[in-house]
Simulated assay, not measured.
Amino acid sequence: MTTLSALASLPQEWQLWINQNLARACTPRSMAEVMTRDGRFDQRLAHAAIEEARRARFPDMPGLQARPEVNTSANTITTPDRTVNVLLTLKAPRIVLLGNVLSDEECDALVAYSEQRMLRSPVVGDAEGKNEIHAYRTSRGAMLQRGESELVGRIEARLAALTRWPAERGEGLQVLRYESGNEYRPHYDWFDPGLPGPRKHLERGGQRVATIVMYLSDVERGGATSFPNIGLEVQPKKGCAVFFANVDAYGTPDQQTLHAGEPVVAGRKVIATKWLRERAYV
């Protein structure tokens, strides 16, 4: 039996539409948005068909970019040392909520390991790219080096397996503590290449293509990770994690990934954040 390619599996009028719009220099991203609107075509099929046509007729046009991805074809993901549960998935923006990423013992050990290194959390300055203290981020944090301990290395290897992205393409873990009233107001994790400060950080490994937020504690009230543009809130649950791609399938920063650490109302929230880069992070 012959298997049709993605492009050939589409109705003839849509094959013609793809080629005509590529010839008009329409972006693959905008074309995919039209094709997937109202569920007309599956997102993966649309991207694959457009990419097939682009490679055949317009090879110099920017196409799909590799990015970290979590395989959600089943309800569990088996890594070399742990079985992780898939709890929620969203296609656009790409968000996956995962359970059983860390054990209670690993969460407690990572909190204890980082406790004495906590400093006020900075943000990247737009002008020079230096770390700056701002009122919209009030947590305290500890920046860990990649693989600096057996525990850190084990967690990083698990995340690399989950996202199918090499560990060397990731920044070190950042452990963050939010006391009552602490928050991180809406922001993006991707670097804006149009600003001189963030542009300097792009030199160290390219764009932050994805983020993983791991919850190291339960929180009595508040402290959700919210995505205000899409109306999603992820409540902190010890051992769980939320993965989200900061760029779309074509490597463009995704405006839908605006997110925030909502204020902690009661209790304390501790998380570990892992930023994944486009290239090896140095």
Rank of each mutant, 00 (worst) to 15 (best):
L176R: 08
L195C: 03
R158V: 01
G99T: 02
L176A: 09
P198C: 10
L88E: 11
V84C: 11
T163R: 14
A48H: 13
D248P: 10
A266I: 05
I95C: 10
P122Q: 12
T78A: 08
G99Q: 13
V84M: 12
L162W: 05
T2K: 14
A32F: 03
D60G: 07
T211Q: 13
D38E: 15
L195Q: 15
K238L: 01
L258S: 14
E69M: 08
A109N: 12
Q145P: 01
Y250D: 11
E51I: 00
M35G: 07
L151M: 05
V213H: 13
Y188E: 10
L151A: 08
E33T: 10
S121E: 10
A109R: 15
D248A: 10
L151H: 06
E106P: 11
T252I: 12
K237P: 00
L10H: 06
E52C: 05
R57G: 10
V111G: 14
G239C: 01
D254E: 13
P198W: 06
A160G: 12
V242W: 12
A160V: 09
T163P: 09
H259E: 08
R137Y: 03
A157N: 04
E132I: 11
S73W: 03
W190T: 05
L10C: 01
F41M: 05
K269G: 02
G129E: 06
R140A: 10
A249I: 06
R140S: 09
Y184I: 03
G141S: 14
G206R: 14
V264E: 08
A135L: 04
I133P: 00
N182S: 11
F41G: 11
G125H: 02
V34P: 01
Q65C: 09
G125M: 04
L22R: 15
Y184T: 06
D81P: 01
E13S: 15
Y281L: 00
C240P: 00
L162G: 09
F244G: 11
I133T: 08
R154S: 12
Q255V: 01
Q235W: 04
V264C: 07
G147V: 00
N19W: 06
L90E: 07
D192H: 09
S73T: 06
A266S: 13
L258D: 13
V213E: 08
S30E: 09
G223F: 02
M214W: 06
Q65F: 01
L176H: 08
E33F: 06
L195E: 10
G197L: 02
E148D: 04
V234L: 05
E179P: 00
R94P: 00
S73I: 00
Q20Y: 04
V86S: 13
Y136E: 13
H187V: 13
Q116V: 03
G170K: 10
K237W: 00
V152L: 03
T78S: 03
V124L: 11
P253T: 13
G231S: 04
A249M: 05
A157D: 06
P186Y: 04
A53M: 12
Q255N: 12
C107E: 07
D60S: 12
A56W: 02
R55A: 13
A160R: 10
